[in-house]
């Protein structure tokens, strides 16, 4: 089997790459750089010696300490967003060989197993670039406010336990609650487009992650008190009906959140809600 480099590479192919990784090799890290909003982008390449188990973050750390390009030009360390490095915070998402994923869990052995192989790093395209690989994902969090993604509790005083729930319901909610707001589903979605103007966020397509959060809270005994508010928002422009059913979101979600199931469920809830609203007027 040939080494798979393309962004369509499967998990199996990447695992196979890992078994064939050459020890002591040097790879080429090709990075899309940009000095700030409105500035022109450029490519810079760096030679990086690879240790076993090394990930993209370790490459970027190496470059920070040795900011010299393959052409021998001194440059600045690459700017990127990062946090936990365990794939639970969502911060270090970027395009790696053209595909959105977390850079912490991206092992060089899987993407560039042979001497001289190239690995390409670019910022996500659906959010405005702040600098280099760091993008502004404020809109992603704003969409959580749009769907009121919270349980309306009475306050923090001691008022006893919450509602009971079955292990099945807990498991379903947990699966949705693992969403770390990384933005992979938005990057892959044909209907979600970059929207630098904050004024239009409220009416632009909200994306799979927020629809799934609406389902998460609609499925909680207290959270469902705001169900109608959430469904009304998702009936508006930018709501669930703008999903084009490409199903890319669920394929790229690093946490396996059942995004298409959520879109289908919310679609049904919205239909019922629109009938109720039509006939009852509230």
């Amino acid at each position: 089997m040939a080494i798979a480099y393309a962004h369509e590479s499967t998990a199996d192919q990447r695992r196979a790459n890992r078994t064939r990784a050459v020890e002591g090799r040097t790879v080429l890290c090709r990075v899309r750089r940009c000095d700030g909003p409105g500035k022109a982008g450029r490519w810079e390449s760096f030679k990086v010696p690879v240790e076993p188990g090394m990930n993209v973050i370790a490459c970027l750390k190496h470059i920070a300490q040795n900011p010299v390009t393959v052409d021998g030009n001194t440059t600045t360390p690459v700017v990127y967003d990062a946090g936990c490095l365990e794939e639970v915070c969502g911060a270090c998402t970027m395009l790696i060989n053209g595909m959105a994923r977390q850079s912490c869990s991206c092992l060089i052995d899987e993407y560039a197993p042979l001497e001289g192989d190239t690995i390409t790093l670019e910022p996500m395209t659906k959010f405005p670039v702040i600098r280099d690989l760091w993008v502004d994902r404020a809109r992603l969090f704003q969409s959580l406010t749009r769907v009121k993604a919270w349980v309306p509790i009475d306050g923090t005083y001691a008022l006893g336990a919450g509602p009971k729930e079955s292990p099945e319901v807990q498991q379903d909610r947990y699966d949705m609650s693992e969403c770390m707001s990384c933005g992979c589903c938005l990057e892959a979605c044909p209907q979600f487009t970059i929207e630098p103007d904050e004024a239009s966020w409220d009416t632009s397509f909200i994306g799979a992650h927020a629809i799934s959060q609406a389902r998460l809270f609609n499925g909680h005994a207290t959270g469902k008190e705001l169900k109608n508010d959430r469904l009304d928002e998702l009936m508006n422009p930018g709501g669930v009906s703008e999903c084009g059913n490409a199903q890319n979101c669920v394929k790229v979600c690093p946490k396996g959140v059942p995004l298409t199931e959520s879109i289908a469920t919310i679609g049904r809830q919205v239909t019922i809600r629109s009938f109720t609203r039509f006939f009852s007027g509230k």
Partner: peptide, 21 residues
């Protein structure tokens, strides 16, 4: 114990027993 109850009310998906505890 009061803190656990509060988090429970906020919707934290704590793992459950078959009797929903």
């Amino acid at each position: 114990p009061k803190i656990i109850d509060l988090l429970d009310r906020m919707g934290v998906p704590f793992n459950r027993t078959p009797e929903q505890n």
